[in-house]
Design a protein around this nucleic acid. Structure first.
Lengths: 345, 345
DNA sequence: ATGAAAGCGCTAACAC
DNA sequence: GTGTTAGCGCTTTCAT
């Protein structure tokens, strides 16, 4: 097998402890000794066995991030931020995906890689409060996203209701009155979109408009195809809203595709607002107005919370910080609003 | 700390070995005994310490996938496929990104997580053959992507030259004669795009057209913004090609954005072809003609190669399989070609 | 400043 | 079918 500390020690004619000291950069080693040991390390091509170190230390320095799909750029972009934030604390991130399956979410939250992962950041879709309460795994868990739980875990999420209200207010301000909502869920799974939907309802009500539930379209998932299908379904029902607020950018982009195919102009015939501010939305032919959550802040807060739990510095009560967001206005609501600088974000 | 085998054994009044047998589902355990041990496991909430198991077995069941960027949907989509392929072999994937930094690529290839990952799948940009030859890490490595190496490692890549030639042939067949190439590299880093660029040259030459090097545009990176900038630079130089072949879909999408802003119609004024077939390309307002590499096959071949090395079944010589690809024709080269079914792919 | 030895939790040989 | 024990490679007291 591999070269161990013992082999190096033998070669250098010193004890294991001394080699360990050199490897770990301990201060009290004479330069001469250090050089001699280093020579042996190089000769043998020694590489520390981190697995053994992990066993001994009881921690690995690895945290996991579990998101529904890599295919959704929002999570891909977020994952990049989490990796960077974790690196600043000397943690490596193991990125995993739950494929939108409840089964997989349960497995992950129950610590499928017990003791190899120090902690977990999870963005759930299907998990319920009771699942969380039944959790036996002791590794710290930090939650991400729109779902709400009555469980004692740190949870990082922007103010989805306020953000959705801003989006709808923007549309109302432009004179739109028939604003559809694309991407709601039904049954047990209605949770994910419920805050943004609530924002839609509240802002309409505040403007004296009775929310028209026939303008709310349920989708199977959260992808481009779901948005395209939902928009088509709405139009096929003979409904012609003057604006669309989508659960996320992908749904909005899918909806825009359908509108283009049907010969409807954006925003002249129908204005569109998304949610997430994925990079793609700055490059669509009609650039997409959207809510931009502060992804870097979300990642930083998630990692910081987890690291705080990991080092035992955290308070007993769960943290519920609110990273920021802002409305980014582009061509899909106001023609010519985009100055032609897609890098502006 | 945690509950160990010893604790469970004590509680159940049996030996450690028996508990281990139950945990590992060994056959020769009486049902009564199994039940008794299971009870103790449940009572104590025992979870096997995988770190210890890894140390003992000398392997972890974790493989790493290192890609340049999560932000590029091609890699995000590929990562999803790799995770799935690995799961079929009971391997967990640790996804990492190199941020397009040579430094990071070196670190990863040298096994920055020695002994915690059994093997590595790497999609390099900057790594050179000599870096690979100097590699001391013993964990198997499988390479992905367009770069070519004179090093004894398995390498999975489609036939980039042939694919590029198909793309150019498609444009030639439509009557285009001034076909620009967007996304070349210069200096030491010219490798990544060189095969696709060679395909461009070869196909033009085969058609009796002398490749016009002023139509080749260098980009800083591989993103949408790079494509937008490159297209703008070309037009600002007063060059007006009748078609554009981009190194990848993101560059093509960025280029399309610039064309739209400049009031040029796609494909009537300028046709555009990309490379990668990311989902986004099926939803752009003018859907994008592109080369679709068989991502599932790439992922499968990469994982299979790695697993074969891991289990020692692999031949001595490096494998160089060629997963398939195909040209997908959409609106960006032939108006109305898209039937309005973006799910077609 | 360096060495000796115990032990992290598990699996695999081997004994009973 | 079940128990005993050694040891994977490392860090960490405790000596010296």
């Amino acid at each position: 097998m591999g070269v161990s500390l013992k082999d190096v020690a033998q070669r250098a004619g010193v004890s294991i402890k001394t080699v360990s000291n050199v490897v770990n950069n301990y201060q009290h080693v004479t330069p001469a000794m250090r050089a001699r040991v280093q020579q042996a390390i190089d000769d043998l091509g020694y590489r520390p066995n981190l697995t053994a170190r992990h066993l001994r230390k009881g921690r690995t320095g690895i945290i996991a991030l579990a998101v529904p799909e890599f295919g959704n750029p929002y999570f891909a972009e977020l994952a990049g931020e989490v990796v960077d934030a974790a690196a600043r604390h000397d943690y490596t991130v193991l990125v995993d995906h739950t494929a939108g399956l409840r089964e997989k979410e349960l497995l992950v939250s129950q610590g499928f890689r017990s003791h190899v992962i120090d902690g977990l950041i999870l963005s759930p879709i299907h998990l319920e409060t009771e699942d969380l309460m039944a959790r036996t795994e002791t590794a710290p868990l930090v939650l991400l996203g729109e779902r709400e739980y009555e469980a004692p875990y740190d949870h990082i999420a922007i103010d989805n209701v306020a953000a959705a209200r801003e989006a709808v207010r923007h549309l109302l301000g432009l004179g739109h009155r028939h604003i559809a909502f694309l991407g709601s869920r039904t049954g047990r799974e209605r949770q994910p979109a419920h805050l943004r939907l609530r924002g839609w309802r509240e802002e309409l009500a505040a403007a004296g408009i009775a929310p028209d539930e026939s303008l709310v379209v349920v989708t199977d998932g959260y992808g481009r195809e779901d948005g395209a299908t939902a928009m088509a379904a709405l139009l096929d029902r003979g409904v012609r809203p003057d604006a669309v607020f989508a659960y996320n950018d992908l749904i909005a982009i899918g909806a825009m595709r359908t509108l283009t195919e049907r010969g409807l102009r954006i925003p002249e015939d129908i204005a569109v607002v998304g949610f997430d501010d994925i990079e793609e939305s700055r490059y669509t032919t009609t650039t997409l107005t959207t809510i931009a959550p502060d992804k870097a802040a979300i990642a930083r807060l998630a990692v910081d919370s987890l690291v705080a739990r990991l080092s035992g510095e955290a308070a007993a009560e769960p943290r519920r910080p609110r990273p920021g967001h802002r409305l980014v206005v582009r061509e899909s609501t106001t023609p010519g609003s985009d100055s032609g600088h897609p890098e502006d974000h």
